[in-house]
C-alpha cells in the first residue's frame, strides 16, 4: 500500500462522510417511524430540532464529496509516475478493478447530496415540512452508497503496488506493466458530434417546454442526465482530442492539468452544476401540487431550469470554442 498525504486525506474524508451519514441515518430511521407534524409531543419537537443538524451534515457531505472528487482525480494523476505504463490518471485508475467504480460512486454521491439539499431547500419553505419523509428515505438510500465508497476506495488504495527499484544491487529491470492505460474506447467522431449537438437541441426544447408545462419535469431530468452522460462520452471521444491536438489522446483527466490552462475545470464545473439542477427540477416537479408549496414552486422550478440551461449553455459554448480553436482536423 502507498502512504501519501493525498491518500491519507482521502481516507479521512471518506471516514468523515460515512460517519456523518451514519449519524444522520440513525436519526432518519427514528424520524420515518415517529414523525407527526400535528403532534406537540416532546419527541416531535426533538425531531424537528434534529432536522437542522441533518441538513447541515448533508451540506457538509456535499462539500466533502466535491473536495474528495477533485482530490481523487488529482492524486491519481500525480501517482502516474509511480506505475509502469500509466501515463496519466486513466492509467492509475485502471490499475485495479476498484479505481473507476470508486470514481463513479463519488460522482453519484455528489449528485445525490446535491439533490437532497435541493429537496431540503424546498421542504423548509413549506410550513408543514411536506417532503420530510421523502427526504429521509433518500437519506437512507445515500448512506449505504457512502459506506460502499469507503470500502471500494480502501480496496483500491490497498491494491496499489508501485514498481520501484527496491535496492541498488538486487532488483532487475522491472517488467512491462500489464493492462494499464487501457484507453477508453473511442466513438467515431461524426456520430459522436451529432449526438452531442443533438442533445443540446433536445435539452433546449425540453427546457422551454418545462417553462410552459411544469408537468414535463421528469422528461427534463431524464434529458439532463442523458446529456451529462453524452457530454462525458463526447469529452472522451473527440473533445479531448481537439484540446490536446492529438488524435490518440482520449484522457478526460488531463484537461485538468496546467498544461491545458485548467480548461477542464471550466468544462466540468458548469456541467456538474447544470446536471444537478436539471435532475433537481425533475425530482421537484411533482411537488407543485402540494398545497403548502404551491406558492414557491413555480419560482423554484424556473430557477432550477434556468441554472441547468445556463450551465449546459456555458459548457456547450466553451466546448464549441475549443473545437473551433483547435488545429486538429478530425472531419474533413
Amino acid at each position: 500500500m502507498l502512504i501519501t498525504p493525498a491518500l491519507v486525506a482521502l481516507h479521512l474524508i471518506a471516514l468523515c462522510v460515512s460517519g456523518a451519514l451514519l449519524l444522520a441515518s440513525g436519526f432518519a430511521w427514528t424520524l420515518l417511524r415517529h414523525w407527526d407534524i400535528a403532534s406537540g409531543s416532546e419527541l416531535q419537537i426533538r425531531l424537528e430540532r434534529r432536522t437542522y443538524l441533518v441538513s447541515t451534515l448533508l451540506g457538509f457531505v456535499l462539500g466533502a464529496e466535491l473536495l474528495s472528487l477533485l482530490l481523487f482525480v488529482h492524486s491519481a494523476e500525480s501517482l502516474s509516475s509511480q506505475f509502469v505504463g500509466a501515463m496519466c490518471a486513466t492509467g492509475v485508475l485502471n490499475i485495479n478493478a476498484f479505481g473507476f467504480p470508486t470514481l463513479l460512486l463519488k460522482i453519484a454521491l455528489f449528485f445525490l447530496a446535491a439533490l437532497w439539499l435541493l429537496l431540503n431547500r424546498v421542504d423548509q419553505q413549506g410550513h408543514d415540512y411536506p417532503l420530510v419523509r421523502v427526504k429521509y428515505a433518500l437519506l437512507l438510500a445515500i448512506m449505504p452508497l457512502a459506506l460502499l465508497e469507503l470500502l471500494l476506495q480502501s480496496a483500491y488504495f490497498l491494491g496499489l503496488k508501485p514498481e520501484v527499484i527496491t535496492s541498488c544491487c538486487g532488483s532487475l529491470f522491472s517488467a512491462e506493466g500489464q493492462g494499464a492505460a487501457a484507453e477508453l474506447a473511442g466513438w467515431p467522431v461524426r456520430p459522436a458530434l451529432l449526438a452531442f449537438y443533438g442533445m443540446a437541441g433536445l435539452l433546449l426544447g425540453s427546457g422551454a417546454a418545462l417553462w410552459r408545462w411544469p408537468a414535463l419535469g421528469a422528461l427534463f431530468a431524464a434529458i439532463s442526465g442523458l446529456t451529462f452522460v453524452v457530454a462525458i462520452a463526447a469529452i472522451i471521444a473527440f473533445l479531448s482530442l481537439y484540446v490536446y491536438e492529438n488524435p490518440n489522446h482520449h484522457c478526460p483527466f488531463c484537461l485538468l492539468k496546467a498544461g491545458y490552462d485548467y480548461v477542464g475545470y471550466a468544462l466540468y464545473l458548469p456541467l456538474f452544476a447544470a446536471t444537478a439542477a436539471g435532475l433537481g427540477a425533475g425530482l421537484l416537479a411533482p411537488c407543485r401540487h402540494i398545497a403548502s408549496l404551491r406558492r414557491v414552486m413555480p419560482g423554484e422550478m424556473r430557477w432550477l431550469t434556468g441554472v441547468a440551461l445556463a450551465g449546459f449553455g456555458a459548457f456547450y459554448v466553451l466546448a464549441t470554442a475549443l473545437i473551433l480553436r483547435s488545429n486538429l482536423i478530425l472531419l474533413g
Binding site: 502507498l2 502512504i3 501519501t4 498525504p5 491518500l7 491519507v8 509516475s81 509511480q82 508501485p162 514498481e163 520501484v164 527499484i165 532487475l172 529491470f173 522491472s174
Partner: peptide
C-alpha cells in the same frame, strides 16, 4: 548487464519522498 532507466530512478525518488512525507503526516 543491468540497464537502469531514468524513469525508474525518478519513480524511486518519488516513492521515497512520498513515503517519508506520508510517515511524517501520520
Amino acid at each position: 548487464s543491468r540497464p537502469i532507466l531514468r524513469a525508474e530512478i525518478l519513480r524511486t525518488y518519488d516513492a521515497l519522498f512520498n513515503w517519508r512525507e506520508g510517515i511524517v503526516f501520520l
